[in-house]
Amino acid sequence: MEITSSTELPSNREAIELVTSDNLRLIGELATPVENKPVAVLLTLHPLPTHGGFMDSHILRKAANRLPALANLAVLRFNTRGTTSPHGTSEGTFGDGIQERLDFEAALQFLKNRNLGPIWLVGWSFGTELAIKYGFDKDIAGAILLSPPLHRATESDLLKWVGSGKQLIALIPEHDEYLAPKEAKERFSVVPEAQIIGVDGAKHLWVGEV
């Protein structure tokens, strides 16, 4: 079967609402395999909403469209506070990666209540900052970081992952204008167990790569 940019494979799609501890309602979607129990669940964290990032950004949309069928994975996507996408608008206003901790925790609690299997964080750009800053002490299997800029997330945040027992995997585009592979290896070196994977020819937005 040929997979194209618009391919949408069978899955169960459920519109969900997350409620944060400061009483904001966030819109989202959970995609699960049609027949089998998922082997794991991906909690996705979208790029910077002030620069066009949202739950329907292309990598996250394609993950939800394909991975339940191809890999038996569940995929949760949601709009952080104040973010608008074709799925709708979440309440609140952009919190510069600080108040979004509450959004992340609401999504994590939702998945714990559903008991869908091991939880992996999948952050992209701004979403990697949330994963790094707030995922180190949570009940997760690990985090996959796409194009981490390491802007809001600092060395002190990375150090909290040392000895955590959680996997930290960073995919770094060769031509990323925010953090290229060489610098990424240097900055992530404070976490000896982190796996840094350079992706030849790729750019920060992964257009044409997935």
Results as ranks from 00 to 15, higher is better:
1 M>Y: 11
1 M>I: 12
3 I>F: 13
5 S>F: 06
8 E>N: 14
9 L>C: 13
10 P>G: 08
12 N>F: 05
12 N>W: 04
12 N>A: 15
12 N>L: 15
13 R>W: 01
16 I>N: 03
21 S>Q: 12
22 D>L: 05
24 L>K: 14
25 R>M: 06
25 R>L: 08
30 L>Y: 14
32 T>L: 12
33 P>M: 05
36 N>T: 13
37 K>F: 06
37 K>Y: 10
37 K>S: 15
38 P>E: 02
40 A>H: 10
41 V>K: 03
43 L>P: 00
44 T>C: 14
44 T>P: 12
47 P>W: 01
48 L>A: 13
49 P>L: 03
50 T>D: 11
52 G>V: 05
53 G>C: 14
54 F>G: 15
55 M>A: 13
56 D>T: 09
61 R>C: 00
65 N>Y: 01
68 P>T: 04
71 A>F: 06
71 A>D: 10
71 A>T: 00
71 A>R: 10
72 N>F: 02
75 V>H: 01
79 N>L: 12
86 P>S: 06
86 P>W: 09
91 E>L: 00
91 E>P: 10
94 F>I: 04
96 D>W: 09
98 I>Q: 07
99 Q>P: 14
100 E>L: 10
101 R>Y: 01
103 D>Q: 11
105 E>I: 12
106 A>S: 08
106 A>G: 02
107 A>G: 15
108 L>R: 03
109 Q>P: 04
109 Q>M: 10
110 F>H: 14
110 F>C: 10
110 F>T: 04
113 N>V: 07
113 N>S: 13
114 R>P: 05
115 N>D: 15
123 G>M: 00
123 G>P: 10
124 W>Y: 13
124 W>G: 09
126 F>M: 07
126 F>C: 05
127 G>S: 09
128 T>S: 11
130 L>K: 01
131 A>R: 01
132 I>H: 08
133 K>N: 04
134 Y>G: 03
134 Y>I: 03
135 G>L: 02
137 D>V: 07
138 K>D: 06
142 G>R: 11
142 G>V: 13
143 A>M: 08
144 I>T: 09
145 L>Y: 06
145 L>P: 12
146 L>M: 08
146 L>Y: 15
147 S>Y: 08
151 H>C: 03
155 E>I: 09
156 S>L: 07
157 D>Q: 09
157 D>R: 04
160 K>V: 04
160 K>A: 11
161 W>K: 13
163 G>H: 11
166 K>P: 02
169 I>S: 06
171 L>C: 10
172 I>G: 00
173 P>L: 07
173 P>S: 09
174 E>V: 00
177 E>V: 15
177 E>N: 15
177 E>Q: 15
178 Y>M: 06
179 L>Q: 12
179 L>C: 11
179 L>M: 06
180 A>F: 14
182 K>R: 11
183 E>H: 03
183 E>R: 11
183 E>C: 02
184 A>F: 02
188 F>M: 11
188 F>A: 07
188 F>L: 12
188 F>H: 06
189 S>Y: 09
191 V>Q: 12
193 E>G: 13
194 A>C: 09
194 A>S: 11
196 I>F: 05
200 D>M: 10
200 D>P: 10
202 A>N: 05
204 H>E: 03
205 L>S: 15
206 W>F: 15
209 E>S: 08
